[in-house]
Design a protein around this nucleic acid. Structure first.
Lengths: 209, 209
DNA sequence: TCTTTACGCTACGACCCGTAGCGTAACTGT
DNA sequence: ACAGTTACGCTACGGGTCGTAGCGTAAAGA
């Protein structure tokens, strides 16, 4: 990290191949699609990426970390739309997030790494930094826009505002994930609309009290 | 199934040991606590239960099915309380469900089997039958009580009512699971109260339109 | 050129998987 | 009592993955 930010890289010796990095992550996603989480092996990924198995272990501690990194970049595609109203923004965000969860790579990987993280503190922070926080930022962004539009009040209590944002985040992300992966039913425009209506009605009512 | 419901069991030969069944499921839960999902092996469960490994495979197709059955019984403990108001009922339900998710067996197993189910149709229906539907029934029960109290209107459209129930279910279960396992923060009385307030405000607003 | 690090390749012990085969145990109908 | 049927425990096995060690080679900087 430090060496990369320096104008001249202080590290000596042969540098790691950036192309191999991308090839490995790409191969990991392909393997997730073809084999799914449980049947994905390090040997298979190495073979697909055209690198030696030892190279994988030099960069990632194991399957968990590798898959988190491979899937994390997909969450960069998520962007908060600006459609003029909070309702439209939330609904679009829900559909966007659902579309990401429909992809076979994320479907099979997301729940699996979360399950692993329940017994691995380091993995949990890795997921938080590279996946969860990126989603949470969208909630904060959406709230700010709504406040600028006057759709939501600016909360005075900093702590309460943060707690509310966390609550909203868990409700939105949790509902979409549960609908998609547990109930295994599609998040279409109709569902997104009804969910958004429910959520915003609750927010308005809570704000008025 | 049929043979068991008959007054005289038509099956001949040595019957399966019911004690072994319970010992195996108990051993599975113990192994989940000690080792977690990923390090749990069939050999370990067999050793803990005091049975041969082959006996496990005679009754369950593999690790996935075994763990689902072992965890499913824990969801029988969930019961819809009757505290006099919808708000109190929902809040108690949320805390009850969260307490179940705090247990190490369910923490590590639930997300894992859901992840597996994304690529296994049979496993998905097994989870639905033995876990998900048991939770969903509580939502229907809670709604009925609220309607009897006059807290919620009786919806005329059968189909819309069912869709609403599904929505509520995904919101409640999803939010609690996400808060507990992804955000990895506790579901205490405070959070349950704020969540319930948000949900019920949304429901009332939706009902009045 | 010399040093340092990354890479590919091979080989390895350890472990788990899921099954086959066999002798024994438990229960049923005659 | 006996034969028929199914469950069980045990052993053994081929096949696969894991994660690491060791070695020679490749690619960079001093």
């Amino acid at each position: 990290m430090l060496s990369r930010s320096n104008p001249r890289n202080l590290r000596t010796g042969r540098p790691r191949s950036a192309a191999a990095d991308e090839a490995i992550l790409e191969a990991t996603r392909a393997s997730l699609v073809d084999l799914g989480w449980s049947k994905l092996t390090m040997s298979d990924v190495a073979a697909r990426a055209g690198v030696a198995k030892t190279t994988l272990y030099r960069r990632w501690a194991g399957k968990n970390e590798l898959v988190v990194d491979a899937v994390a970049v997909l969450f960069d595609e998520l962007e908060m739309p600006d459609l003029g109203s909070l309702s439209a923004d939330v609904q679009a965000m829900v559909l966007q997030f659902a579309a990401l969860l429909e992809r076979p790579e994320t479907r099979t990987a997301l729940m699996a790494v979360v399950a692993e993280s329940t017994r691995d503190e380091a993995l949990r922070t890795r997921i938080r930094d590279s996946i969860v926080d990126r989603q949470k930022r969208l909630v904060l962004q959406g709230r700010q826009r709504a406040q600028e539009r006057g759709e939501l009040p600016v909360e005075a209590d900093e702590e309460a505002a943060s707690a509310t944002a966390d609550l909203i985040f868990d409700v939105i992300a949790g509902a979409v994930v549960h609908r998609t992966l547990v109930s295994a039913e599609p998040v279409d425009a109709d569902w997104a609309g009804r969910f958004t209506a429910l959520l915003l009605a609750g927010l308005e009512a809570a704000a008025s009290t």
